[in-house]
Design a protein around this nucleic acid. Structure first.
Ligand SMILES: [Mn+2]
Ligand SMILES: [Mn+2]
Ligand SMILES: [Zn+2]
Ligand SMILES: [Zn+2]
Lengths: 145, 145
DNA sequence: GCGTAATTGAAAATAATTTTCATTTATAGT
DNA sequence: ACTATAAATGAAAATTATTTTCAATTACGC
């Protein structure tokens, strides 16, 4: 079940948020990219079709979308606050291209065996995990192998 | 092979860096903690025994220690710039306690089967990964189960 | 259309990080 | 021990990132 900009809009409304043109523009900017964008990058892009938008609105919108779990965060490559549209609704992780920034999702991380081993060995009660792969996407490999 | 503050000092020297009291103090502060510390937290701690140190020296020292791979970075829990002494020299990952911040290391992440599956399925050429587990450490479980 | 609570953006405030530069210092060579 | 010197330091300013405040505007249920 892909999460389009349209669906996100209706979710926003359902959650009691107003659907403003600013929010729609932020969603558009994020949805239009297959790579992750920082708040500043989102600001620059949204600005083009919506000059006059405030950076503060970008931050506020990102907070809401994050709270609702509608966008994903990427950490790889030193970027610690960069976002993209959440595509699979299930639990999933990301492959981040270090050349072009493209993010590919995957499900079935299947870390439970590892988690069990760690619980046994360390006494830790594992509750969650952060997993990202970095490398080069297929098309970037084609360009310069 | 544990990496003590003393060993790190000699590594620094070997790499051509001077061993200043400021750097030793930063190393001490990081080595004395089993949990991860932000630059500001390190600043506060170092200050106690070394008042007059500049925050800028903390940042510079952290950059050097990171470049040399002598400290580890922790991402879990929204913290994106917090550090701790690198303990295992081999490739390893972290279990981060969400209660007390204690970091437990583990080796043998054994993600190669998963990486192969992803290469096959997505065409991605995986080069590295970011993996962290979050949860509660043994002693925090004892306190409030 | 109206009323109203939510949203917006300018501006200021705060926090985080980097740059600049004159002064100090660690240390290699004597 | 004494120097020479390149590296390191810290104050201050500059830059960048983020949050707060608040008066004006706006989406949307009625
Ligand atoms: Mn995602
Ligand atoms: Mn580590
Ligand atoms: Zn790519
Ligand atoms: Zn704990």
């Amino acid at each position: 079940m892909k999460l389009t900009e349209k669906k996100v809009s209706s979710i926003l409304r359902r959650q009691g948020y107003k659907l403003t043109p600013q929010r729609r523009a932020v969603l558009n900017a994020i949805a239009a990219n297959k790579d992750h964008l920082t708040p500043a990058e989102i600001f620059d892009r949204v600005r083009r079709e919506y000059p006059g938008i405030g950076l503060v609105t970008i931050y506020r919108t990102l907070d809401i979308l994050t709270d609702l779990g509608l966008i994903c965060e990427v950490h790889s490559g030193g970027h610690c606050r960069s976002y993209l549209m959440r595509r699979p609704q299930e639990h999933h992780h990301h492959l981040v291209c270090s050349d072009c920034g493209t993010v590919t999702d995957f499900t079935n991380c299947d870390l439970s065996a590892l988690e069990q081993r760690l619980s046994r060995e360390t006494g830790f009660h594992v509750e969650g995990h952060l997993l990202e792969f970095s490398g080069r996407c297929q098309s970037c490999q084609t360009i310069t192998p």
